[in-house]
Design a protein around this nucleic acid. Structure first.
Length: 356
DNA sequence: GATACGTGGAA
DNA sequence: TTTCCAAGTAT
């Protein structure tokens, strides 16, 4: 009688919690990989990538021995490619500085590249059962509603309130289940839109529900405008091969391959943009040929329309002025080169045209 | 604190 | 079609 909040929550979790691949063991490595893949990424999207990763790199040692191309090929399409580079770097650090064992303290975990405050807490709680709150977007929303938080849970003041709530609400020694229960509640019941309050085990504990403010919590973040750019992309063929370049690591689509090109300047025609970008990136003059298509794409903070042209080199030999590497690739081999969404689309067009 | 960093699903 | 945003991190 009069069950506490955590008793109701954990009881609900044992019945309704999701059966997810990375929950089948408490292997810190498996939990680490899953948590990094899940950063800003949906569970359904992650599952096939996670399965393939664990087959190819089942432990720290196999990951440390991997190549950039291997991990990028596996990561292609998942987004936030820095995560893949960081996983490799972290594997090396774990072997050199932590005796090939994933550390079990939050402060040590946070030193690993790609592991921030959330992921460190998640590994500590889920793999090592430390009493810490793994505060992600789900928990921000769920707890903001439970305490009817009137300030932004993404800012420091709101965050403080959430951690204070957790200090009182989290049962000692059950942080792993407690965190995962809140995550599942946020993913299935206490959703961003249309929360299913009638099915919520914490309905009677929820201040927002009591006050009818569920839909106003958490308070919305101020909107940001995303600019639209126009970008050129060159399909330069020689015999049965096409020219692609590797983007520098650390920036957008770092380490991935692309068709050369770039952003249109204000007032510039798209064909002039194409010629200028090729001159700057490859050091050669090109004739801009037929337009293969215009490919719209939305990134986090801007949108693009990519105009893909066939181009013909008029003079000179392409050099890697603005790329890590250049490569002439036979069309059927294009699929072996990891690319972002738009370039993959263009590559698939070429492969299809070549193979009717 | 603000900004960069991908993609796809839902409304 | 547009908008929002989903298990965040690094700079």
């Amino acid at each position: 009688m009069n069950a506490t909040l955590h008793e109701k929550l954990l009881g609900w979790y044992r019945v309704h919690g999701r059966d997810l691949p990375w929950r089948r063991s408490k292997d810190p490595y498996a939990i680490w990989i899953s948590e990094v893949m899940l950063q800003q990424t949906r569970v359904e999207t992650v599952i096939p990538y996670y399965t393939r990763w664990m087959e190819q790199f089942p432990n720290i040692q196999t990951l440390a021995r991997s190549t950039t191309d291997q991990i990028l090929s596996l990561w292609e399409g998942l987004g936030y490619y820095r995560r893949a580079h960081n996983l490799r770097k972290a594997a090396h650090m774990i072997i050199e500085e932590f005796h090939a064992t994933i550390p079990d303290q939050v402060a040590d975990l946070e030193r690993l590249p790609g592991v921030g405050i959330y992921t460190a807490a998640a590994i500590a709680a889920l793999a090592f059962n430390l009493d810490v709150l793994a505060l992600d977007g789900n928990l921000r929303r769920v707890i903001a509603r439970l305490i009817d938080l009137e300030v932004d849970p993404r800012r420091r003041q709101g965050e403080r309130c959430i951690y204070e709530w957790a200090d009182k609400a989290m049962p000692v020694g059950q942080a792993g289940e407690f965190n995962q229960a809140l995550m599942d509640l946020g993913a299935t019941i206490c959703t961003p839109r249309k929360p299913k309050c009638g099915l919520c085990p914490l309905m009677q504990d929820c201040l927002a529900y009591a006050r009818g403010t569920q839909l106003e919590r958490p308070i919305p973040r101020p909107g940001v405008r995303v600019p639209l750019y126009h970008v050129s992309a060159a399909v330069i063929q020689r015999a049965d091969t096409v020219l692609i370049g590797r983007r520098p690591e650390g920036k957008l689509l770092g380490g991935l391959w692309e068709f050369p090109g770039g952003k249109q300047d204000p007032g510039e025609s798209m064909e002039a943009c194409m010629r200028r970008e090729i001159q700057e990136e490859l050091g050669v003059e090109v004739q801009v040929g037929v337009l293969l298509g215009i490919f719209p794409h939305a990134y986090t903070h801007f949108k693009v329309n990519v105009h893909a042209y066939r181009c013909l080199i008029l003079s000179g030999e392409p050099q890697a002025l603005d790329h890590d590497q250049l490569c002439w690739v036979a069309l059927p081999d294009l699929e072996k080169y990891p690319m972002g969404k738009v370039d993959r689309l263009i590559a698939n067009l070429l492969i299809t045209d070549h193979n009717p």
